[in-house]
Simulated assay, not measured.
Amino acid sequence: MKTDLKIAFFGSSIVSAYWNGAATYYRGIVKALHRMGHDVTFYEPDIYERQKHRDIEDPEWCKVVVYEKDENTLRKLLKEASEADVIIKASGVGAFDEFLEKEVTELKTDNNLIIFWDVDAPATLDRIEENKEDQFNQLIPKYDFVLTYGGGQPVIDAYERNGAKKCIPIYNALDTDTHFPVEANQKFNGTLAFLGNRLPDREKRVEEFFIKPAENLPEKRFLLGGSGWGDKPLPENIDYLGHVYTKDHNAFNCTPMAVLNISRDSMAKYGFSPATRVFEAAGAAACIITDYWKGIETFFEPDEEIIVVKSGEEVEKVLAELTPERAKEIGQAAYKKVLSRHTYEHRAELLESVIAEKLDIEPKAVENTKI
């Protein structure tokens, strides 16, 4: 019986988190699969200057193939990938997405699995349900599985309504190798910190949950990290840090009294979609304040392990009452929960158990994978 797999993975980037929030998700999953003995090749395009803004060099836990934005080159790589046991096309590669969606389905044989891994299911579902002529509507049934970054039952139902054979959420999680408690860093001192790139379907919520509270609490210091906010009018008590590299995330999470999670509109709509940064912050024992989204109690206990707010006014109220001692208690509770239930080892075990149902492999560890 086969015990290891050869996996080909077409995604945005695993070596650069620059304008690429999925990077830490990919790293966590792929690293855990490598530790299980599986062989992963990650194919990523050289676009958006990501190779100039790498967070890591090519890792020992997977082979990275960076390709030019050229269809002929991509066809050669697809032929190479056709020899894998599992071939994965992720959403949002950023180059030749529609081409890859179709061509990967052409690689299906009796001895392999082809998987569409959706790291932004709300956007994909909105796309295909608003445009029934989108070619992906006809391709969904050809994939053995659709895996999603989040979304819970609403996303499962939507995908299966659109022809998916099986849709399974593989939630993001904590990479304990990279995110953990560290000493505070003075440059990140403050009351509340938010880290997120400026995106159209998040900006209004950032204004509501972060910028307005800062305006109304001028005596407190707020920290804003992420790309794209440079020309955004901000109150004087918000320090804009620009892109915060992965190596600084732990200090960014550990140092301020609390960190804020703000969901994109589409993620909040479907629910059950905790951002990667929620688990990263919990892994650093940060006190997390998050906007409300359906299903949050599936991951963390509100008021005990995370603070949930539904408006900017509630953010202001929380900050007025929260003490450093209470913030530390909440952060420690979140840290304990994430280690016991929400690491990438847990997610990879679930993924392996799903694959094992279809391929002749012996799962190495499948306990405690459900949440």
Rank of each mutant, 00 (worst) to 15 (best):
K212E: 13
V40M: 10
F210S: 04
L5T: 02
P154H: 13
L77R: 14
R50Q: 14
L359E: 06
R161V: 00
R341Y: 08
N216Y: 03
P235V: 07
S12A: 11
A17I: 00
N72D: 15
E57V: 01
I288E: 04
C62T: 06
G225F: 03
E367P: 03
E203A: 15
A327R: 01
I156E: 12
K79V: 12
D360F: 12
E304D: 15
S263P: 03
R75I: 06
R75H: 14
P122I: 00
E362T: 13
P141N: 13
G163V: 04
G271F: 02
H34K: 09
E130I: 00
N20I: 00
F252H: 14
L339Y: 09
V64P: 08
E130Q: 05
L359A: 07
V259Q: 03
R264N: 09
E103T: 00
Y143Q: 12
E325W: 01
I47T: 12
V66S: 07
I115T: 10
K358P: 12
R27K: 15
P218D: 08
K247T: 07
P324W: 07
K294D: 13
K364Y: 14
K310A: 05
A22N: 00
E60P: 02
Q135D: 07
F96K: 09
P235R: 15
K108Y: 11
T343N: 14
A356V: 01
E68H: 14
K142D: 05
G28H: 00
K269Q: 14
D126A: 10
K204C: 04
D97Y: 07
E325N: 11
E60D: 14
F188A: 05
E314G: 02
D120T: 01
A121G: 04
D118H: 01
P218E: 09
H38Q: 11
L107E: 05
E80P: 02
F9A: 02
N111F: 09
E304A: 10
P154R: 09
K212W: 10
I87F: 06
H38F: 14
D360P: 12
E314P: 01
E49P: 03
P274E: 11
D55I: 01
Q332H: 04
A184E: 15
Y270D: 00
I288C: 07
E57T: 05
A121S: 15
A285K: 14
R54F: 06
E304H: 15
I140Y: 06
T176F: 06
V93N: 01
E301T: 15
T176D: 12
I87S: 06
N137K: 05
K310F: 05
A164N: 04
K336Q: 15
F209E: 11
D58W: 04
E345Y: 08
P169G: 01
Y171Q: 14
T148N: 08
E133P: 05
N112C: 12
D4P: 02
E203V: 12
A333I: 04
